[in-house]
Design a binder for these strands. Structure first.
Length: 224
DNA sequence: CGCCAGGGCCTCA
DNA sequence: TGAGGCCATGGC
């Protein structure tokens, strides 16, 4: 059986559905998103979260998003108008707050000029070209926005994914982002929901098995 | 106390 | 292209 598909089954069986993107869908934090189709506010918030979580634990990001909400700053128009230093202070808990405040400003500017309805008419490859031109948006942030905010099928590769694939010898240790992305996308059905789950499951699994060297991944090593 | 977290930019070969 | 420095808080 195909290893990539096999790993997905094993992880799903072990951890259950993750229902990513997290937090924004939790009822207690954002009632309007719970169990509903994403609205534009939710999509924007996911993009903001994708920036804020760069090399940062989600817990710290969650606090920052709650603060943005509390100060009524969670929209493209509001962030565009906001004082950058105040914005930085608001997202302090997410770390790199000066850089990220600038990146949020740029992102807000982008989304005020490019409406979700229009962006969603494009396919993942077109969107990728567009987002990668934005300063502060690299491959992972770009693909996270495309997959989770715009719901187009593209596989998100992060440090955990690379670590896991290297450890399981599914790719070379110095494999590029695109190589690893291709590895998954060429072995899977192009399905947004499944790609969303799979990436989330890798993160969950990696938190257990790939946080500290030497890695021990009994679940997957035994089964491959 | 040190290490690391769901990266990306800039600089310099 | 790729390696290394830099950005920074909070949890453990």
């Amino acid at each position: 059986m195909n290893k990539i598909r096999h790993i997905y089954k094993l992880l799903l069986d072990r951890y259950g559905p993750q229902k990513w993107w997290p937090t924004t869908l939790k009822k207690d934090i954002h009632p309007t998103y719970h169990g509903q189709k994403l609205n534009n506010k939710a999509r924007f918030e996911i993009a903001v979260g994708a920036i804020l979580t760069q090399n940062t634990s989600w817990k710290n990001v969650e606090k920052a998003i709650i603060e943005l909400n509390r100060k009524n700053l969670l929209s493209a128009e509001k962030i565009k108008k906001a004082n950058q230093k105040i914005l930085a202070k608001t997202i302090k808990s997410a770390g790199y707050y000066n850089q990220k405040a600038e990146r949020l400003k740029i992102l807000a500017d982008f989304f005020s000029k490019n409406k979700f309805e229009d962006l969603m008419k494009k396919d993942a490859a077109e969107l990728r070209e567009i987002f990668l031109k934005i300063k502060g948006v690299g491959p992972e942030t770009c693909d996270s926005i495309i997959l989770y905010a715009l719901e187009k099928p593209i596989f998100v590769v992060d440090a955990y994914t690379k670590r896991m694939c290297g450890h399981l010898k599914l790719c070379k240790k110095d494999a590029s982002y695109r190589e690893i992305q291709d590895l998954f996308m060429k072995n899977l059905k192009q399905d947004t929901k499944m790609f969303s789950e799979y990436h989330a499951l890798i993160v969950e699994h990696a938190k257990h098995c790939y946080s500290r060297n030497p890695y021990s991944d009994r679940l997957l090593k035994q089964s491959l």
